[in-house]
Nucleic acid binder design. Structure first.
Length: 783
DNA sequence: CGTACTAGTCTTTTT
DNA sequence: GACTAGTACG
């Protein structure tokens, strides 16, 4: 009995095919991590490959960590020396060693999105580019795309010939890159691009890595971009033992430069590649797989495959459409709660997935109300919080004096009376003398223009120097504590705002415990490495898998995970797929979202609940959406086909409501476009009945509020009455008029119905069909 | 130099 | 609706 006996035939083939290029097309839940870990074990145990000659690349630290642990379980100790890490950390590791060969110091700083934005802003100012005409965001994404495709500033400029906007972006790109180099900093994209540059330009370095990495494996290969592909190609060009694992149906990072052709064309780049398909699914019930297969079948340009399972049919997929997003959230929380208290699940069995981070808010509110423990993955990143960035900027300043951005961030935090004019004068001096901002600070007394402001700078410089000199003497934890004590940062926080301070101090404590845990887990902890760890964490990395909590996250974050109970919330056209996608003339964008839907569906092992709302507030604007086209692509017999639920009491769908309601009315409304029709007849907000006690589950009063208390209705009332007040604003159009909407474009007013809250306006838009909207929110103008 | 208020933008997804 | 950047004033 060996560890390989438990594998199926195709999996075995993938594990035993160790030599040469291998492409494993692994459908969702087909055990690809199992294959990769067993393959590593096989290489070490049976092929006498040294652990340090193996490299495995993943996208997130969490995936890397999981792979390490599972290899550990298989082969025991010795797996430590296998190089398992993410694309970005692999590159940092290489660059920390050799960056001096491409003109950087090896203690370079890594810039995050905020840092990038400030640099772009400065550069635009310098080049006198009007950011109203050419958005920073646009420039940044153009630069990022260029880097993902390995196009440097010079080449970009060449390509921009004849295109005015591109030429201006080329100018910014050039200056941006020069600034980063001056600051001894790299952005995320640089990490990959510059590593490729290093490998291509330095045969010695390349040869040393060929010697080291004899077997290379890449996970989630469908999400690699051109730069990552080139990186892998460079690393593998010595031994050609390259094994990539991926699923073209799960390629969901096109916006980040992922090139689906990397996986589709693998066999062209490596004609001798061995291709293995894994189609047996070990995760989900047949119903769930059937739904996933049916949805993804609508995409063209994919490698044909179909998942199957030996497991049973399972329950039907639950589908609910609600009047409002509020009720949707209420239902999900209620469903989780009732199943929890009837012992059907643990909280950690559940995940709620949605398209955009903003959707988490309503869900959170309901989870809090129902006292359900939950964790939100993503959203506002821990490391992008003000207080955390401040402390990190101190650390960066101490670590890399060339990082002007970090120095400028903290020079007046806490307040030292150093303002913009002083900073500008120092910067001018630095520019004149071709030195860094920090070095200019050190020579403050030389800067004539400063006058008595110079006296304020000296204590700051001295403080940083003291921190630096102590760096070798005490731990990072001591350093961080020292920074807090010396600067009086916490006191300043409290002085600024009493209420906010508490949460911010908690975050700082959290950061301190992260330093402590970093120092505990590393033999030779360094400040640079800590900052790098911090810079390269993904949202999903911070999730504690042992906590019994419901996880709330975007569909993107959910890739690679699985849960017994999955809720797909906000399944509406306009939300998922998003308006941007629907409006786009590029049909591949809808295909990308369809793949995202496929990812979402296939996360579920046992129960899948799909929900939608007719009415939803997005960016302070109420939208009316029909059920997502992706739901319509699921064969209806796979759905439980129940009525949309309008009652606030979840007892209604806990007991056998099918008897009373089933199939007497249309189960849900699939009429496209404007589907906001009040179908429920007599059932209105006023006659919700409290039948709370009718469910036979234990529900402690303190934990669960009755769903029918005026309390739970309040937010809705408050919201609508606010509308009421504003509703009196006159509109200058009438039925038959042509009107213009900021997003939907032009259309013709079909009907206007004065409602109790606000006037409902029905408009037939030329581009996007009929919509019914409230006049106050729609902001329609007559044309 | 620091603060308080206002106007504008944003949101699709992230290492 | 929420957050941010920019501006006016003390």
């Amino acid at each position: 009995m060996s560890i390989y006996d438990s594998l199926n035939e195709m999996q075995k083939k993938a594990v035993f095919q160790t030599e040469g290029p291998v492409l494993i097309l692994a459908g969702a839940g087909s055990g690809k991590t199992r294959v990769l870990t067993h393959r590593i074990a096989y290489l070490i145990e049976k092929c006498d490959v040294k652990p340090w000659n193996i490299m495995a690349i993943t996208f997130t630290n969490k995936a890397a960590e999981e792979m390490k642990n599972r290899v550990d379980d298989l082969v025991g100790l010795g797996s430590d020396s296998i190089w398992v890490s993410t694309f970005h950390s692999s590159c940092v590791r290489i660059l920390r060693r050799y960056a001096d060969r491409i003109g950087y110091d090896t203690n370079f700083t890594i810039y995050d999105a905020d840092d990038q934005k400030s640099i772009i802003k400065d550069v635009c100012k310098k080049l006198q580019i009007d950011t109203k005409m050419l958005k920073e965001r646009t420039i940044l994404s153009a630069i990022s795309n260029a880097k993902d495709s390995l196009i440097g500033p010079i080449e970009y400029e060449t390509n921009a010939f004849g295109d005015y906007n591109k030429q201006r972006i080329a100018g910014v790109y050039k200056e941006y890159q020069a600034t980063l180099r001056k600051n001894n900093a790299m952005d995320f994209d640089d990490l990959i691009m510059l590593t490729v540059e290093l490998l291509k330009g330095d045969p010695e370095v390349k040869a040393s890595y060929h010697e080291r990495f004899r077997y290379i494996m890449v996970d989630e290969y469908q999400d690699t971009n051109t730069a990552q592909f080139e990186l892998v190609k460079q690393l593998a060009s010595g031994n050609r033992n390259l094994c990539v694992v991926g699923d073209d149906d799960q390629s969901i990072y096109k916006f980040r430069g992922a090139n689906i052709r990397n996986i589709l064309d693998f066999e062209m780049v490596y004609p001798d590649a061995c291709v293995i398909k894994l189609e047996q699914n070990y995760r989900s019930s047949q119903n769930i797989l059937d739904a996933a297969n049916a949805v993804i079948r609508n995409n063209i340009g994919r490698k044909d495959k179909s998942l199957w399972t030996a497991a049973g049919t399972g329950n039907r997929i639950h589908f609910r459409q609600f009047d409002t997003a509020y009720e949707e959230a209420e239902y999900i929380a209620g469903d989780v709660s009732s199943k929890y208290f009837s012992g059907k699940l643990r909280y950690s069995d559940c995940a709620v997935l949605y398209r955009t981070n903003a959707q988490s808010r309503l869900l959170e509110e309901q989870f809090i109300k129902s006292s359900i423990p939950y964790n939100v993955v993503g959203g506002v990143n821990f490391y992008s919080r003000k207080e955390i960035k401040d402390i990190l900027a101190y650390l960066k300043t101490i670590d890399n004096g060339k990082d002007d951005l970090a120095v400028k961030r903290i020079i007046n935090i806490p307040k030292r009376g150093i303002g913009q004019t002083t900073i500008n004068k120092v910067q001018d001096y630095a520019d004149e003398n071709q030195i860094s901002f920090y070095d200019a600070l050190c020579e403050a007394d030389q800067i004539k223009t400063l006058g008595k402001a110079a006296a304020k700078l000296t204590p700051f410089v001295n403080m940083i120097q003291v921190f630096r000199s102590r760096l070798n003497v005490y731990s990072l934890e001591d350093l961080m504590q020292d920074i807090l004590d010396t600067t009086g940062y916490v006191e300043q926080l409290q002085a600024d705002s009493e209420e906010e301070a508490e949460a911010r101090i908690e975050n700082i404590d959290e950061l301190i415990s992260k330093v402590v845990s970093y120092e505990e887990t590393h033999d030779q902890p360094t400040l640079s490495e800590f900052l790098e760890d911090v810079a390269l964490v993904a949202d999903i990395d911070g999730v504690d898998p042992t906590a019994d909590k419901v996880l709330l996250m975007t569909l993107h974050s959910a890739k690679g995970l699985e849960f017994p109970h999955v809720y797909l919330a906000g399944m509406e056209d306009g939300v998922f797929p998003s308006y941007m996608t629907i409006m786009s003339d590029d049909s591949t964008e809808v295909e990308e979202e369809r793949r995202l839907a496929y990812v979402g569906i296939t996360r579920a092992k046992e129960e899948l609940t799909i929900s939608a709302a007719k009415q939803r507030m997005i960016r302070g604007e109420t939208q009316y959406n029909s059920v997502s086209r992706f739901v319509k692509e699921i064969p209806q017999e796979l759905l439980d086909n129940r009525l949309p639920v309008y009652k606030r009491d979840f007892a209604d769908y806990e007991d056998d409501s099918r008897e009373r309601y089933s199939f007497k009315q249309k189960p849900y409304d699939f009429s496209g476009g404007s589907n906001y029709v009040n179908q429920r007849g007599a059932v209105t907000k006023q006659n919700y009945v409290n039948r709370d006690s009718s469910i036979g589950i234990v529900r402690p009063k303190a934990v669960l509020k009755p769903k029918t208390t005026p309390d739970s209705v309040k937010p809705f009332i408050a919201q609508t009455s606010a509308v009421n007040n504003a509703a009196s604003s006159a509109v200058n159009y009438k039925v038959g008029d042509r009107v213009r909407h900021s997003r939907f474009g032009d259309g013709c007013v079909l009907a206007m119905e004065p409602g109790p809250k606000d006037t409902k306006v029905t408009v037939a838009f030329d581009e996007c069909g009929q919509k019914i909207m409230y006049a106050t929110f729609a902001k329609l103008t007559k044309i």
